[in-house]
Write a protein that binds this DNA or RNA. Structure first.
Lengths: 209, 209
DNA sequence: CCGATAATAAAACGAACGTTCAATTAATTC
DNA sequence: GAATTAATTGAACGTTCGTTTTATTATCGG
């Protein structure tokens, strides 16, 4: 009925985040109770409030971390090269790899935005928009250069992102396809969708990353 | 404190369904209480139980109706013609029009499957699989005929459906684009994605429906 | 116009919810 | 080794949840 032997704030907080992502991805934010979460961590419900002031604050923290991670990953993967085809290739590969590696967090990110307060939602949407803007810029540059054939840049960007993110709905690691195979298949579809296969030049890369 | 003047079971049930779809699409199944739903209908919570035995049963009814409607709409729209390109065109147009017209129900259908019991979930997934099968068949026929260029039929079918259904996330009626314009843009992307633009014949239809 | 039935209200059920608080013990510091 | 701080428990707070029960009134067939 007090501090337990070997207890460590840092480890407990990490365990809470991990358990929260896992449970909320499976059952949804609203359906997961603080008691259920605490039980998964191996702690009493009251202990959670040492790390997160409210349930919504916990969710917000998870979503921020996820979006920050996505933007950081893209910044690290973004090629210095200016070739739209190469940039789009890097974008697709990074997007698939990142989201497959963090399937649960992605699920929460896509489903639970409505549980956020107005201010918190605005903050997350700002990050999301910044990410979409990266893809839109690639598409616009490619369209101007004649590399891509695109009707509506904004609409195409959203369509591509939704198609790519959809991977996490059905993908299970260790089954028929590897992440690399999935990424390459989606890359091929994205290239055809943007008309990159048949525009002017045809020297696009198809090799594995 | 009893039956109210002008009350009608049929109208009340329809009002419950409508309010449930609207509220659950906005706030999520778990976040909507039976009292909140009843208030939206203009009735006490207990009255809901004359029409639906449990909250989950209400959700299940809504999802069944939605999936049945989708399959019926496709059966009515499916062309007798055997040309894969024409069948794919009809599929895309029907999918977009149906889902845009029923944005709220689609949202619920996509988000709240996890709230269903095992048996109810199985039943819904059966309908969803039947629908996906229709698209897979079109893609397979088209690939065999050389009309389409497709790596993985199942994967492509899922990717297309997710791309198309994603429309409801951003689409708002009465804004920049009409449903018809959106449908045609997505149709063009689908055709490029499946390689229909550059395969053997090139006499595909581009006119409005 | 009267009996049957359909439709609802009002009140209550126990359970679970998010959260707070005081008490208690482990670890750390000096 | 005492004082301090960090980490957690157990119990409780008021509220809300889905659902049930009972009573009451509107509507309708005869």
């Amino acid at each position: 009925m007090a501090r337990t032997i070997g207890s460590d704030g840092g480890r407990t907080e990490a365990a809470i985040r991990e358990a929260a992502i896992s449970l909320m991805a499976r059952f949804g934010y609203e359906a997961v109770s603080m008691r259920q979460l605490a039980a998964e961590v191996g702690v009493q419900a009251a202990a959670l409030y040492r790390y997160f002031p409210t349930k919504e604050d916990l969710l917000f923290t998870l979503l921020c971390e996820h979006m920050d991670g996505l933007l950081s990953a893209w910044e690290a993967a973004r090629p210095a090269n200016a070739d739209p085809r190469e940039r789009l290739t890097a974008f697709v590969r990074n997007h698939i790899h990142f989201h497959v590696a963090r399937r649960h967090a992605t699920h929460v990110s896509n489903m639970e935005l409505r549980a956020l307060s107005r201010d918190n939602l605005t903050q997350i949407l700002r990050l999301r928009t910044a990410y979409e803007k990266e893809l839109r810029q690639i598409l616009r540059d490619g369209a101007e250069a004649g590399t891509f054939v695109i009707d509506d840049t904004g609409l195409t960007a959203i369509a591509i992102i939704q198609m790519l993110t959809g991977v996490i709905v059905w993908f299970r690691p260790g089954e028929r396809l590897s992440v690399e195979e999935v990424a390459e298949t989606y890359l091929a579809m994205t290239m055809r969708l943007t008309g990159a296969e048949n525009a002017r030049e045809n020297t696009h890369v198809r090799a594995h990353a």
